[in-house]
Design a protein around this nucleic acid. Structure first.
Lengths: 143, 143
DNA sequence: TATTGTTATACTCTATAACTATA
DNA sequence: TATAGTTATAGAGTATAACAATA
């Protein structure tokens, strides 16, 4: 395998970026989600572990007041609960409720539905290539 | 190559979707764009061809009043121009200006910068695999 | 004094409804 | 009567600034 030139790497990066963004866009357009995108992101984080609003704001790169509002919305829908932190009276611990887990799963299913139908139309060889590419894309997205 | 089961296809679709959305998210977070996302989308469409606000609204799946506002913002920045349609007095033709083209190119360059740095860290073999995957992803995103 | 979280306030993007002009 | 575009108005998400409670 010959080395690639910088120009070839740049062209690949451009095309790969466009392809990923096109797929993301289609997924968003094709699925009608149970919760709004910014709420969904928070549900994903809370499924990993309960967190403080401050942590959520840092992870999602929004201001603390915005996260307060987002958590309020999710709490009103019964998708998350707030609890005082026994170790630090300033902190609040936000957790996913069973309904929140359900909303998360439903949204993921809706997003997967379109993608699955598209992937199913590819040949087994093409699917296998994408299976390997998926691992690389996850590495690309890691910091 | 053995056929894949429906469950394997679904698993691939899920992981591939997540990978694409993670990459898109990182691209958006890592680059500081010259214009807002919804404005950028419109610039991309106008780079393909001049269009009516109605067409833009349909393509971008927003309401006509929202597109009026978006076009107003772009026009105030000097990135697009409005012109009357000589064939239909009700219609307006929105076109990209040289400044608009420049803003489009700058935004694309900013988005590519991070992606290129990440792709450059892969081996030539891995880059080649992603080059093939890119073509498949574009097919997946096509309707 | 620093940090967590909220409230107050304003700006932006979105939508629906209503209006104007043209076909 | 139907369509393109705009204006009017309201709702939701975001931000900064200011405040309360705790460390």
């Amino acid at each position: 395998m010959a080395d690639t030139t910088p120009a070839e790497v740049a062209e690949l990066a451009t095309q790969l970026r466009l392809a990923c963004m096109r797929v993301s866009r289609r997924v968003r357009f094709e699925s009608v989600d149970a919760v709004a995108p910014h709420q969904f992101s928070v549900l994903v984080r809370l499924a990993e572990a309960p967190r403080n609003p401050r942590e959520l704001a840092d992870i999602e790169k929004v201001s603390p007041p915005s996260m307060t509002r987002t958590v309020n919305g999710l709490a009103e829908q019964g998708l998350v609960t707030r609890a005082p932190d026994p170790d630090d009276g300033r902190c609040v611990i936000v957790s996913l409720t069973p309904d929140g887990r359900e909303a998360l799963d439903e949204t993921r299913a809706a997003r997967d539905a379109w993608m699955t139908s598209r992937v199913a139309e590819l040949t087994p060889a093409e699917q296998d290539l994408l299976r390997q590419a998926t691992l690389l894309l996850h590495r690309v997205a890691d910091r």
